[in-house]
């Protein structure tokens, strides 16, 4: 099963819409609560990163019985140093975004902690692609 969502940079009013839809879908598919929780945390962080740091993006969610694979591809400034970006506390968020409580530099570490696979590829001036996979806890 595959779903697609569009995300618009700067649109904080709708940030989290894709995550909320995916949460509903996973619930309907009877995915375990613990898997839903961790997938939702990771997807929300990646979705908000497009809103906060990029111009626009597409989220593709592939659901299989044994895994959920999510790809977030954005057009944006890209990430010059991915290892640095992965460090807890590192953030280039603007003062306005920080005032809202974003920009703690905890999003990427949250994704890493909650998903089984995380791959980030990025080209400066073009955009960033985040691939993440959760292997489902199937009874």
């Amino acid at each position: 099963m595959q779903f697609e969502f569009e995300v618009t940079g700067g649109d904080f009013a709708n940030a989290g819409t894709a995550s909320s839809q995916v949460k509903k879908i996973l619930k309907q598919l009877n995915v375990s609560v613990s898997d839903i929780k961790r997938i939702v945390v990771a997807l929300y962080e990646a979705e908000v990163n497009i809103v906060a740091h990029a111009y626009s993006g597409v989220v593709t969610v592939e659901i299989e019985t044994t895994q959920v694979r999510i790809i977030l591809k954005d057009s944006g400034p890209g990430i010059p140093d991915i290892d640095l970006a992965m460090q807890q506390g590192y953030s280039t968020a603007s003062p306005e975004v920080r005032e809202m409580g974003f920009g703690a530099g905890m999003g990427l570490p949250n994704i890493k902690r909650n998903m089984d696979v995380l791959n980030i590829s990025s080209e400066v001036g073009i955009g960033t692609t985040v691939e993440m996979i959760a292997f489902l806890n199937v009874a």
Partner: peptide, 19 residues
């Protein structure tokens, strides 16, 4: 900090904030 809550709060909690 929103990512702090996202990463560390648990279901059923009351979230105390000024946001």
């Amino acid at each position: 900090l929103l990512s702090d809550v996202m990463g560390n709060a648990e279901s059923g909690m009351i979230w105390i904030t000024l946001q």
